[in-house]
Design a binder for these strands. Structure first.
Lengths: 205, 205
DNA sequence: CTTTTGACTAATTAATTTAAAAAGTCAGAA
DNA sequence: TTCTGACTTTTTAAATTAATTAGTCAAAAG
């Protein structure tokens, strides 16, 4: 089936919105600005998306889909268990750099991030990551590289710790709104150290 | 040297302030309330403490000192490496429950938490915890229980992860201002799972 | 019939002012 | 030396107003 003109236009809008969101954040981006970027009237935007929340959601789902894809590829191309985990970390840091601003302004945002649709999208992300990681662990268990620990539970712990180091670093060392290079470097260093020990913990002797 | 009357009074004030701070948080506690609790005038409080920040700092240092002490004891009484780590986790959760509210209201607090004195106190806490943990690791390295990994670096990673799991859980699952029981249970579960793998990672085969 | 728009209203957010509360001071009493 | 009531100053909260932005719609354009 061919892509309809409407779908194409929607994609253009998402692309334009993404640029603004990534740079200024959702709250600091108005629908008029996005429309202007496309030499369109604001009313036209509302022809393609019922409201701002829907647009933000579409942009978010777009990002998450690529995010999952790249993580999946990172694991698939790895030559060893630990290499795969480290590759995933690089993907995550790369996305963190690119889309950090999107998350900023949660507190006084104009778009309702408490909307169940956002929760659903994030739940789906988390679940998919979990399945992906659990499958990856099982793969290396079959090859007798890893101990026969519970794959799902282990994947859960690993992802929890990955998120934990990330959020803690932001929470503690983040003063300004724009993230510094050192922030991401610290996250990378701490995460890799942790992963090294973690992998030793589940590898067969 | 004996304890002066002034020191004694200061201790009473700290004790009364602690009760309010732990329950309502620093921002929601007024100097007048603390004074009233002690059947004292507000002006008298200011005789013993130059300003609210000084009082908060004194209370904080009090808590941190006990916190460090209990963690130290937990390690000292442990019968095995992992038991010590798990005991420390219990101490941390216990303190988290007790003093969670103190930290609430960072954003619109009336007391200047950016004051370098607070930073110093927290830096000292972190450094002492680090030294304590590194020494604990070295102890079990001598007994050939643990691998000869870099003790300081390993201690750093472990503490980072402990903090990370804690902050992430609060950041993600905390809606209301008063923390729920389940919050702490989740932190405990996740942390213990992680610790189990982590210990396996640094234990000798 | 699909897409676009300018001109509109409704809802949010930001800025300004005003009122209340809490921090902090001080002369003098106990 | 320790304590207090009455005071001033500073901060925070509430209320008001102004400005911006989200969202609508009838009608035009293709």
């Amino acid at each position: 089936m061919s892509v309809s003109a409407t779908d194409q236009k929607q994609e253009q809008i998402i692309e334009a919105a993404l640029k603004r969101f990534a740079h200024f954040g959702v709250a600091k981006t108005t629908m008029s600005e996005i429309a202007d970027d496309l030499s369109l009237s604001k009313a036209s935007l509302y022809y393609y998306f019922p409201d701002k929340t829907a647009l933000v959601l579409a942009v978010g789902e777009n990002i998450l889909s690529v995010f999952l894809d790249e993580q999946s590829k990172a694991l698939a191309n790895a030559q060893s268990f630990e290499e795969g985990i480290n590759a995933i970390i690089e993907v995550r840091i790369c996305f963190g750099r690119k889309y950090f601003m999107m998350h900023i302004g949660d507190g006084q945002s104009d778009v309702n991030t408490a909307d169940p649709k956002f929760k659903t999208a994030l739940d789906h992300l988390k679940q998919t990551e979990l399945d992906m990681m659990a499958a990856y662990i099982r793969q290396y268990q079959k090859e007798k590289v890893l101990k026969d620990v519970d794959a799902k539970e282990t994947a859960e712990v690993l992802l929890d710790v990955l998120v934990g180091l990330w959020i803690a670093e932001i929470h503690i060392h983040q003063k300004s709104f724009v993230p510094t290079n050192e922030l991401f470097e610290r996250i990378r260093t701490k995460t890799k150290r942790m992963v090294s020990i973690f992998c030793d913990g589940i590898k067969r002797n």
